[in-house]
Design a protein around this nucleic acid. Structure first.
Lengths: 153, 153
DNA sequence: AATTTTGTTCTCTTTTTACAGAACCAACAA
DNA sequence: TTGTTGGTTCTGTAAAAAGAGAACAAAATT
């Protein structure tokens, strides 16, 4: 696929976004490419050409993306090529899971609170308050999803 | 400060957590140390001793943490030492800002949608739905904070 | 059977990260 | 004024990340 300037820019930006989330650069760019791709799917060699990278790099990145359940491939009848596409079946589910990392923070902050001495009262109180908020927030998530569903019924 | 086993373990875990968010290892460990520290503040040399790292590394990490508004230092009268502490004034505000990165996703996904051709309808529809959800979610945040405040009166 | 297509895996190199250590500097103390 | 304390900045380096390129493999094609 020929990518125009706007598409290039988006791939770049999306790439940087995912890179900052800890993924390796090429992985982010592939996500970007699959998002802007006109067919919403790309063949192995197409990725290589469009992004100008090596086979090995693409192979490894795709293995990672598939392991993480971000990407799947489909094959067309009579063709041996694989067409890679974003497993978009439920981005909201991914998002919900992403929010779960809040639970991690809460968990270790609770442990911190449990072992803190009473001397630093103000600090402890603020920490307590924040923990409570995280708890509250976490509990609100399901109903948030619920409300979104209803609101558009 | 002498750190016991539990404290060590927590520092380690908190460190890993922040590392996965893209910060460098030492930065995460310092956050951990300041969280479990009995006075909730630590002097420069104390950080060095407790974590067993070099002055330069600590200096750089603290510069970063201060730039990011995670940490401030206070000095005690008559002392030249700086005591570094987590700027805990409002963790919720930090959290709220953290949620703002959702806006980033939404922004580039909207741009993606704008340039996508109409052929891949199902893909586009799902993307649209997800964008709408992000919009909804983002708008709900303020009222979420509001409800938390009220709920505890 | 030989060749081509579509990838995968292995090895090597380049680049970046994360930190150590020494030199440095400003403030204060002796 | 010289030394000490508290920290910063500069320079070097070990280790890890990211990817190139070649060798390899399995399936399909000729």
């Amino acid at each position: 696929m020929e990518v125009n300037e706007k598409q290039k820019e988006l791939i770049e930006r999306i790439g940087v976004f995912y890179e900052r989330k800890g993924m390796q650069p090429l992985v982010g760019k592939i996500i970007g490419l699959l998002l802007v791709h006109e067919q919403a799917e790309a063949a192995f060699d197409e990725i290589i050409e469009t992004l100008g990278v090596s086979k090995s790099a693409v192979s490894n990145a795709l293995t990672f993306l598939q392991a993480k359940n971000y990407v799947i491939y489909t094959s067309k009848l009579g063709e041996r090529k694989r067409y890679f596409t974003l497993k978009s079946t439920d981005w909201k589910a991914d998002f919900e899971q992403e929010l779960e990392h809040i639970a991690d923070i809460q968990r270790f902050l609770e442990e911190v609170l449990a072992i803190r001495p009473g001397e630093t009262q103000e600090f402890n109180d603020r920490l307590r308050d924040f923990c409570d908020f995280l708890e509250f927030f976490r509990n609100e998530i399901p109903s948030l999803f619920e409300r979104f569903k209803n609101q558009r019924g």
